[in-house]
Design a protein around this nucleic acid. Sequence first.
DNA 1: GATTAGGTTTTG
Length: 801
Amino acid sequence: MPVHVVKDGAGPSTQVPAQPQRISIPLLCPTSACTGKTVKGRVVHKGPLVSMGEDNYVLKTVIQEEDSQQDMSPDHSSINVILFGALAKDYSESVSQGDVLLVAGFTVGKSPTAHKDKLHACNLQLAGDDAWVYVWPSTVSLRAFVPSKRTSPVSTEVTKAAKVVKYTYAPLSDLTPGVVVNVYAVVTFFKQPFRTKGTDYCSTLKITDQSNKKVGCTIFCDKLEEHPKIFKMGDIIRLHRVKTQLFNGAISLLTSHGFSVVTFDGTVGSPVVPRTSSGSFKFGEEDCQAVEALRTWAANQSLVPAVPCVPLSAVQPKTYFDLTCQLLAKAPVDSSCTLLKVWDGSKCPHPLLDVFVEPNTLEGSPTLSKDIANLTANVLVYDNHVEVSRQLKPGSYLRIYNLHAVPGASRLPSNDSGQSDQTEHLGFYLHGGSSYGKGLRVLPDDSPDILDLKRILETFSDSDINDSSLFEVWSTPPESIGASPDEIATERKCDHTVEQVSLAEVKSRGPPQVFHVQAQLKSYQPQRLYQSLKLYCHECKTIRDVPDDVTVGGVFSEAQKDVGPCNNGYWTLELNLPREPPSESPSRNLTLLISSQLMGKGKAKELIFLKGATLEETCRIASAYSNIVPVTSPQGTMTPLDLSAPFLFRGTKRYYGCKQCSQLKVGESLGEGVEVLDEKSVADALGVQLLQYGLLMKLELQDGTGSLEALLWRDAESFFHVSAEDAANDQEAQDRVQETMDRLCPPGSSMAERPWMDLCLSAYTVEENGQRLACYQICHTDTRGTNPHTHPHTHATPSDT
DNA sequence: GATTAGGTTTTG
């Protein structure tokens, strides 16, 4: 068996013949005496088995001596080995790249390819029964990643063989042409993958390591995801199976068969997280150490040129910079240009170029509602970057490399109308091509730079602004603050024109005054809608809660205790209701009374007094008759119920009277003289001061300058496009109010997600405990966009509180 | 199965 595989764990002494005369590969020459000599090296290339006819084969392989003395011929430690016949076939089947070989019985010939492959001038030819190849399978760690060149005893290799696959990383200074190596390095320059004229994408890198040698590296791969994930200069890269090559007199690295790459953040102290799309890469403690060693080393080297990553707030016109940002929206401009709308949460001190595109071509939302200070930058990307941009999803985080800040950006054809003078405005161009690393890529959501950006962008949804860099944004004059008209959730209906001011200004100016503001809803009270329903007395100006059914039911129960007779003068229908379980409940009479006057006019059913009914019974009867007035008859005289209960039921609606301002009529004349039967006339007839339904809410408003509590009361009905009376009785009307609040303040939403409102605020003073307090109320303001078909019922609105 | 590109002095 000419190819002898050394088994795992077997010491070389048992199977490998004595090797007293090993020749170092660089020392080989055509005149070398070969008999009884051996050569040792690692397989760095294994060619295909070539058939030359029946049972005749040829195979070419390259081995590299790893422990050769550097002061000898460093460039010639790799040599072509040509195997013939059965040996070639055996070799093809039992040897892999990375294995270590000991070969014997060879002849030394002149390498016909030396000028081309830059390898050893000689080759080794192995043929016949005298030729032997001993193989230590698998890749074996021969030395740690240190620039020193120490040798490892053969026995060490064998013990480790096939147990743990370990990689040897070559210092960049030690690379010789034509070999396959693994390297660890710091990225000092990179281009995002770009399409080649061939079948692959190409990544171009420049890398360096502790040996301080800078080496170019070209990665060809048809799959974008398999390209190195490099986000910035200073990232750490691990390359497996890259081929050294001489180009323009310098060593460069090129992908070779079985190539793989992993990258890491280059920041000292950050977690060592491998970035790879491969599910089966090797990563161990040694990798952490190698990454950390490179980070520490690079930190003191100033390898990375003056940090090109710049926020919009620090952009200088006419410069090139890298921008980390969030994509808000994009739109194709023409076949060679795409518009990206991005922001990074900082405000560019220069006015920004506004690029108009047809709204229907815009993908994503320009989210102008949260961009109160015009933070959106328009980036025009050209040519090859258009293709990359096509894959981008609004909302994703990007880094754009070598972005050009162009003052007085020339106008786009689509930009002619309305953009009269933007000569001083800054436009951002990602020019075509890949020179200077021009390009863009999506950054993963969890990358450290994104965490910073996210935090900044989320500050827009918080009221506590601690970041001094944002202060400038918030303190921009209100004139420059403005959401897109389409994004405003409310509309001012007032007929006066006053300047729009910030909430801070509203507070500082104080009452009495009217203000126009633009704000978002931070919170509101009450959260439970029925609690916002109030009863208002025009007479005494008090507001009371609508009593709940337990309270009202209690009034009815109390009234039922009056079982005495009622005074005459009414048509009376007396119903004796059977006992109901529980059996101890007293039997009772339910009495319907109708005034003789109405009876005479044939309006008997239009106003019915009801005595002795429960609340539930009253509601049931009310659903069939137009006006039901629950009554009692203490001392035999018909009297309306206590005004904690409704004095009138009309269909499903209930009407209340003011306890304080009503002067209830009693007796025979009750209900006399009613012409038009509605709640007002009935109230008048009963001496009831009618209470009016209203909606009362406290809205906490917020803009960039602060927050302010404002009431929604007087114009609440038009604000919600709903009548309070309907809201008190009708689920659909209640839902409408809830929908509006959910739109202004979506449950679980951040401030950034809430719409802006144009508001008219009335500032006035109230006295409370002898103190004058400033109060604010939202007036003349309607919500927009929903329920266009509904309009508030015409009601007299409660006057200002 | 080889080929692709080989940083760069950009500019709508």
